[in-house]
Every structure is written in C-alpha cells, then in structure tokens.
C-alpha cells in the first residue's frame, strides 16, 4: 500500500457563442453633454465581469479612458435585446455590438470635432486620454468634453450609435450533418499531476499546468479570474461533484454544501496558467470566449494522471475513492 504519483495530459477546443448561431445581441452607445459615454445593453453579468469588459471595449473604440464609460445593462425597458449570457457568447456577441455602436458614435464625435476645428473628420484621431487631435499637427486639438458640449448645445448632433451582432443561424444538413456550429474556437492543454493513495483511493491533485488560447485577453486580470476559477471547477468535477452519486439510481443526492462535495480552500492544486492569443477573425479585438472551456481539460487530464499513477481506468465521473478502490480490487483479481 502506497501513495503513487502520476501525470496526465489533455487537449481541447471549445466553440464561442451559441451553437449554430442565430443568437443576436444589440448595444446602444451615447454621449452625455460632458463627453462621458453610456453603453446600454440587456446582457447579464453573472460575475464574470461583463460590465467592465464592455466598458473597456467601448472606451477603446471611441478613444477615451475606460472610466469615462458607464455600462447600463439588463433592464428590458431601456436595453435593446440580447440573447443572454451563456455559451461563452457574452464578450464575443455583445462586444461586437458595442464596437459597432461605439464606431458610429465616434464618427459623429469626429464630425462635430471637425466642424469645431475646421478640418476634415478623416484627418482627426483620438489620443485615448479624452482629446481629439489633428493627425500630424497634435497642437491643434479639442477635448471630447468640449466636442460633446458643442454637439449638444450648439450643433444639435446626437453623438450616439447603434450596434447589432448576429451570426446567421446554421441548420444542420439531415443526413451528413454538414453545419456551422461556431465561427471561432478557444483552445487549451492541461497537464495534471496527482497522488493516489492506493489504500484509500483518495486522489490529491498536486499541480495543474494549464495553457489556454483565448484569442485576446481583453483584461488580463479578469481573464485570470475566469481561468483560475474554471481550473478549480474542472478538478472539482473530476473528483467530487454530482447530485446523484449512484446514477442512474436517484438516491443519496446531496441537498446542501456539506453533502455536495467540492474542494475547499485547503484542497487546492498548485495552479499555473499560461495564456496564448491568436486573435479570432470575428472576435471583438480578437477575443474568443474563455469562460467555459477553461473548466474542461482538467477532467480528462486528472483521469489520465490517475491511470498513470495506479494503472486503473476510471471512465465514470466523478472519479471517487470508491470507484478507484473497486477498480484496483478488480485489477488485483
């Protein structure tokens, strides 16, 4: 009887957005009289940070600092339609809608600035700090604050824009299954290292090294939040979680956090996260959806590591001590 070590690898891809498309999202952007920007949506922030990311996308597109943007979302009386936050679609779909709306608003903003500066709008650029400059002659400039005031009170222009993003729905061909499930895919590869106690069947995940390719890390700290939390959930799914421990038998389902098992703060694997960025052709600034796929590769990586450690295959999730012990016993016979 001993503690045995093993390691396993798994590699995956994951589609961004609702399967087969057909899932629209809209956004509206407008400026206040003093040059702050409102993004209006009906998308839902589940805690992943949708509001913050939409603010950064709008700010980047208009050319202002993020703290000049306010996101107002998820009120059906004010926000235009969004299909919802699921299928790793939030950032991709809403982000594209915000870019389109912000571009339209930016265009009006530049036109008003052009009138104020008596130049062509196409000769103007933003400095990202809240000013509009003449290209090649940056001493000739106007603040966005002043442009917005002028638009509102002098020139009667609405600095605003509408955005809509829709990937046309694909219908699978009946006999061949020809279809377009998604337009872009995120990728991951995980190496997990485990210890298995062959007397108790208990598995300890020592380390997980996760490499994720997510198109573009729009806010690296927030991406890290998703990926670290997702990696934890993947391990949790691999070893602990189910509402029906003896599926398909319906008995013994947990009804609280004492019975429904998940790793606690004392059960964490040492987690390493590496991010690669291959911008997607149709993602907002190249982004793909990282939120779901980050929890997938740990399950098979842990299962493969368990095999590497003790030589038994557990092909049923979760990989409980009971299943490992039964397999070890079967192997011994």
């Amino acid at each position: 009887m001993a503690i045995r070590r093993g390691r396993g690898v798994a590699a995956i891809n994951y589609p961004t957005g609702m399967n087969l498309g057909g899932d629209p999202t809209q956004a509206l952007v407008h400026s206040t009289p003093t040059g702050n920007f409102m993004v209006t949506l009906s998308s839902v922030d589940l805690g992943q940070g949708m509001k913050q990311i939409m603010a950064q996308i709008c700010a980047e597109t208009i050319g202002v600092p993020t703290d000049r943007v306010v996101v107002d979302t998820a009120d059906t009386d004010t926000g235009p339609h969004c299909m919802g936050t699921f299928a790793s679609r939030g950032t991709h779909r809403a982000g594209n809608a915000v870019i389109q709306a912000a571009r339209e608003a930016r265009q009006v903003m530049l036109e008003v600035a052009a009138e104020e500066l008596e130049v062509n709008a196409s000769d103007l650029e933003t400095d990202g700090q809240g000013n509009i400059l003449v290209k090649g002659a940056p001493q000739k400039s106007i603040s966005i604050f002043d442009v917005a005031l002028s638009a509102h009170f002098k020139r009667g222009r609405s600095i605003s824009g509408r955005g809509m993003f829709l990937i046309p729905r694909s219908y699978p061909e009946k006999e061949t299954g020809a279809m377009k499930p998604s337009t872009c895919y995120a990728h991951a590869c995980t190496v997990a290292e485990v210890e298995v106690d062959d007397e108790t069947g208990e598995v300890t995940v020592l380390t997980v090294k996760n490499v994720f390719e997510i198109g573009r890390a729009l806010n690296p700290k927030m991406v890290e939040q998703q990926l670290v939390g997702g990696s934890w959930m993947g391990i949790s799914h691999a070893l602990y979680e189910t509402t029906e421990p003896y599926y398909p038998n319906r008995d013994h389902g947990g009804t609280d956090f004492n019975q429904y098992l998940m790793p606690g703060p004392g059960d964490l694997a040492e987690t390493e996260i590496i991010v690669l960025e291959r911008p997607s052709a149709d993602g907002p600034y190249g982004a793909k959806g990282p939120g779901e796929m980050c929890a997938n590769p740990q399950m098979p990586a842990v299962a493969n590591a368990v095999f590497d450690a003790v030589g038994v295959r557990i092909d049923t999730l979760p990989i409980t001590p009971e299943r490992i012990l039964r397999a070890l016993k079967a192997q011994a016979n």
């Binding site: 922030d45 950064q56 993020t66 996101v71 990202g128 729009l218 690296p220 927030m222 890290e224 990926l227």
Partner: peptide, 28 residues
C-alpha cells in the same frame, strides 16, 4: 498567470490602449 506573447505575434497587433489593460473592475 502569464501571457506568452511570442506565440502568434505575427498575426496580432499589440497597439491598444484600454484593451489588454488590467483595469480594476467597476463592480468590485
């Protein structure tokens, strides 16, 4: 977390102002 910028550098422009920045979360 580490960003490995060496991969796909030929197909990516890293010239953005707000995108790619670890701005604090407005909801926090």
């Amino acid at each position: 977390m580490e960003l490995r910028k060496s991969y796909f550098a030929d197909v990516r422009k890293d010239d953005l102002h707000e995108i790619g920045q670890p701005r604090p979360r407005s909801d926090s």
